[in-house]
Amino acid sequence: MVVIDNKPTAQTGISFDLATYLAERQAIVEAALDRSLPVVYPEKIYEAMRYSLMAGGKRLRPILCLATCELTGGTVEMALPTACALEMIHTMSLIHDDLPAMDNDDYRRGKLTNHKVFGEDVAILAGDGLLAYAFEHVAVETQHVPADRLLKVVAMLGRAVGAAGLVGGQIVDLDCEGKPNVSLETLNFIHNHKTAALLEASVTSGAVLAGAPEADLQRLSRYAQNIGLAFQIVDDILDITATQEELGKTAGKDLQAQKATYPSIWGLEESRRQAEHLIAGAKAELAEFGDKATPLIALAEFITSRTH
Rank of each mutant, 00 (worst) to 15 (best):
Q11T: 15
S36F: 03
L18F: 00
I14M: 10
G13T: 05
V39K: 06
M54L: 15
V3D: 09
L22P: 05
K58T: 00
F16S: 02
L18A: 04
I28S: 13
V29P: 03
L18P: 00
R50S: 06
Y21G: 10
L18T: 08
M54T: 02
A27L: 12
S36W: 08
Q11G: 14
G13P: 10
D34H: 11
S15E: 15
G13E: 04
P8W: 05
M49F: 01
T20I: 12
Y46D: 08
Y46P: 00
I45M: 11
Q11R: 14
R25S: 14
V29Y: 02
S15V: 14
N6T: 12
I28V: 15
S15H: 13
A32I: 06
A10H: 08
Y51F: 09
L37Q: 03
R61I: 04
S36T: 07
N6Y: 09
L60G: 02
L33V: 02
G57S: 13
I4D: 03
Y41W: 02
K58I: 09
V29F: 04
A10P: 07
K44H: 12
A55F: 02
Y41L: 05
R50I: 01
L18Q: 02
V29T: 06
R61M: 05
M49P: 08
L22N: 01
G56N: 09
R25N: 13
V29C: 11
L33Q: 04
Y46Q: 01
R61A: 02
R61F: 05
A23S: 12
R35K: 14
A48V: 00
V39P: 11
A23R: 10
D5T: 11
A48M: 03
P38K: 10
K44E: 10
I4V: 10
Y46K: 01
V29I: 12
I45V: 12
Q11N: 14
P38G: 07
D34M: 13
K58S: 10
I4Y: 03
T20N: 13
G56Q: 03
M49C: 00
V3P: 00
E43P: 03
Y46M: 07
T20L: 12
Y41V: 01
L53K: 11
V40K: 05
D34C: 02
D5A: 11
P62T: 05
L33Y: 04
P8H: 07
L37T: 07
M54A: 13
L22Y: 03
E24D: 15
F16D: 03
A48I: 01
I4A: 04
A31V: 10
P8C: 03
E43S: 13
E24N: 13
K44L: 15
L53H: 09
P38S: 08
R61H: 09
L18K: 02
T20H: 11
K7G: 03
S36G: 13
N6S: 15
A23I: 08
E47G: 00
A55K: 06
V3W: 11
G13L: 05
L53S: 08
A19E: 15
I4C: 07
R59K: 13
L18N: 11
A48P: 04
K7T: 12
I28C: 09
A32R: 08
F16G: 07
R50L: 02
K58R: 06
Y21A: 10
F16N: 08
S36M: 12
P62H: 07
I45A: 05
L33C: 09
